[in-house]
Design a protein around this nucleic acid. Structure first.
Lengths: 267, 267
DNA sequence: TAGCTTTTTGTCAAACTGACAGAAATAGCC
DNA sequence: GGCTATTTCTGTCAGTTTGACAAAAAGCTA
């Protein structure tokens, strides 16, 4: 990888977590308020530095996850989102951060777990719109995470991860609608979901409803890949091109046509 | 991200490149023979350490790319694949590597660019089968890169990146067949590709053929996302679950059902 | 029981898919 | 030139899926 006499530069390695959930049919992301400089007092993703040089990256992410949520960490899945390491993104020095994506069902209301002072859920659209100011390049990381979730909803059974152990088909539809930001026809959604064998399976005799006809209850089936995919309508998937390694909103030449669904594409 | 008095551990940051191309209708990956320990004499992905602490990660990847191929780097696209940073993956210390994926059309035969002694193309199946021994965790990185390419072929116009500036529909079909490892019906492929507006556009009057009816020539169109996607047959997409941050083949509990198309998913 | 709401079962035309037939355009060979 | 081999391209056809929408079913409220 390199020659001998020369000594490569070192960097500080951190992990950041994009934890998404649904509250009142809207997509939310977990943010903390930073207690120290830089960006003291600003909202940011939960994250941490590698604890010691022998700690695995995913181990660090999992530990951070367990500190921020009281959920059973074993049941959550962490998916690597990408690396964010622009020089200058962190005034403390060369910090390279590995971002992870996690999907959580609606958590027990007060999300705080430990001392991490102000941790709370914030609507994702307020983050994406720039309404909420975020530390570092965390807004871009969240945007990438949400886009990843959108794509994964099409091809995997990820949507069930947003729900509790059991749910109705309408619950599942709300997930798709919230993440995709569109409305779906209940009849067609019902048909599609039912036809995809192994996606959801009936869960006992239980039924739930507030008003209207009681709905059947299901739980997640064994299948994790959806074949054929549950494609979102054409207009909804025309996302924007994404870049990294440079300050966001730098390039006015972004085309509307391009999308990679995998952030970090560069010329 | 952390408290104050404590000092986070440092890591060495490297980039590794998975460069794929097609030769004689087979998928190949660019490998170099390591000239120094560790793994001296073993095949490995082209890669390098960050040159100085202010160098961007993508910049490092792009520089390595330009050293290994004589292609116009500006025309190639680099896509971030993921981070590989298991402790112990590199005997020299804590090395975290950011992997990038690049797709190249058939390059001018001798692939070497600079002094990087033995650089050459190797069939991807010989790598995946374990037939060729690779340094570090590079076999896994390549596997992840190929799986990424497979998925991207469905949803993006990536396939044209394997071809030269102009190509025939059959050329394009060969790309899909090589990367997916299956055969496609020429008639249906023709129809599908033609119907996807903006995917490929006619390129002048030129025609080429060796034997048989001369084929029309096309070049890549403006569209980068394929809508609707060009789905591969069901059996072909039943891939294996992937993990990272741990030595491969560690966990006997891997399920056959799960796949994420995005490597690095962990429980 | 009537009215309201939400779930669930259908229906129907249009679009798409997979399998396959066959015409068109060239090169090579006798 | 005529024949064959080969590859490209244009259709066809039945089965499936999709999107839009109708209407029945099953509860709650009044």
């Amino acid at each position: 990888m390199t020659d001998d006499p020369w000594v490569p530069p070192v960097v500080l390695l951190a992990v950041d977590l994009v934890i998404l959930t649904l509250r009142e049919s809207r997509l939310h992301v977990l943010l903390i308020e930073r207690g120290v400089d830089p960006y003291k007092g600003t909202l940011a993703l939960p994250g941490r530095f590698l604890q010691h040089s022998g700690e695995g990256i995913t181990a660090a992410a999992r530990r951070e996850l367990s500190e921020e949520t009281d959920l059973d960490v074993a049941t959550l899945r962490l998916e690597q989102l990408g690396v964010y390491g622009d020089p200058g993104r962190d005034p403390r020095g060369r910090v390279v951060s590995v971002a992870y994506l996690a999907i959580a069902p609606r958590l027990p209301e007060p999300s705080a777990g430990t001392d991490a002072a102000a941790a709370g859920w914030h609507p994702s659209d307020r983050v994406l719109s720039g309404d909420l100011a975020l530390a570092f390049d965390h807004r871009r990381i969240i945007a990438d995470g949400i886009e990843r979730a959108r794509v994964k909803l099409e091809h995997s059974a990820l949507a069930t991860a947003f729900c509790g152990p059991t749910f109705t088909i309408t619950d599942l539809q709300r997930v798709y609608e919230a993440v995709w930001g569109i409305e779906l026809d209940p009849r067609n959604f019902y048909r599609k979901v039912q036809k995809t064998e192994g996606f959801i399976v009936p869960a006992g005799t239980a039924r739930k409803s507030a008003t209207g006809r009681p709905a059947r209850v299901f739980r997640a089936g064994p299948r994790t890949v959806l074949h054929p995919p549950l494609v979102r309508p054409a207009e909804a998937s025309s996302a924007k091109e994404q870049e990294s390694e440079q300050p966001p909103d730098r390039d006015p030449h972004r085309t509307r046509s391009g999308v990679s669904s995998h952030p970090g594409e560069v010329g």
